[in-house]
C-alpha cells in the first residue's frame, strides 16, 4: 500500500524546490572566476548544507538547464579528471543581479519570520 506523505514531508519538498535554485546560484556565485561543474556543485551543496536539503544529485541538472535557459548561467567546457569534456557553469551578469536580489528578499523573509516566532 502506498504511504501518503505527511504534511511536514510535503512542505519540505515544496520549500526545498524553491530554495534549491537559489542554492545553485549561490554556489556558482562562490566560483565566479573559475566556475563549477555539475559534480562539484552537487558535492559542495551536500557539504555546505550537511545534506539538509536531501537533494538527489541528478535533479540538479534540470535546474541547471532551467537557469541556463533563463540566461542566469553560462556554460563553458573543460577537460575533466575522469577523461571526457565536462561543462563548467558560471554566473552571467543577469545571474549575478538575480542572485543578489534573491539574497536580499530571503534576508527580509527570514527577518519577518523571526518576528513571528
Amino acid at each position: 500500500m502506498k504511504k501518503t506523505p505527511s504534511f511536514e514531508d510535503s512542505w519540505k519538498v515544496e520549500i526545498r524546490r524553491g530554495i534549491l535554485q537559489y542554492a545553485v546560484l549561490a554556489i556558482v556565485s562562490r566560483h565566479k572566476e573559475e566556475g563549477i561543474h555539475g559534480y562539484g556543485l552537487a558535492r559542495e551543496l551536500d557539504e555546505k548544507t550537511d545534506g539538509l536539503l536531501g537533494v538527489k544529485e541528478g535533479t540538479l541538472y534540470p535546474i541547471l538547464h532551467r537557469l541556463r535557459k533563463e540566461r542566469l548561467l553560462n556554460v563553458r567546457t573543460e577537460k575533466s579528471e575522469a577523461g571526457p569534456v565536462r561543462k563548467v557553469y558560471v554566473l552571467t551578469g543577469d545571474g549575478d543581479r538575480v542572485y543578489r536580489e534573491l539574497t536580499s528578499i530571503l534576508g527580509s523573509i527570514f527577518d519577518k519570520l523571526e518576528a513571528l516566532r
Binding site: H37, E57, P62, H65, S80, E81, G83, P84, V85
Partner: peptide, 16 residues
C-alpha cells in the same frame, strides 16, 4: 545534453 552530463557526473563520482 543532459544525458552526457549525467554520464560525466557518474564517471567523476565513481572515480572519486
Amino acid at each position: 545534453d543532459m544525458l552526457e552530463e549525467l554520464e560525466t557526473h557518474i564517471n567523476e563520482a565513481f572515480q572519486n
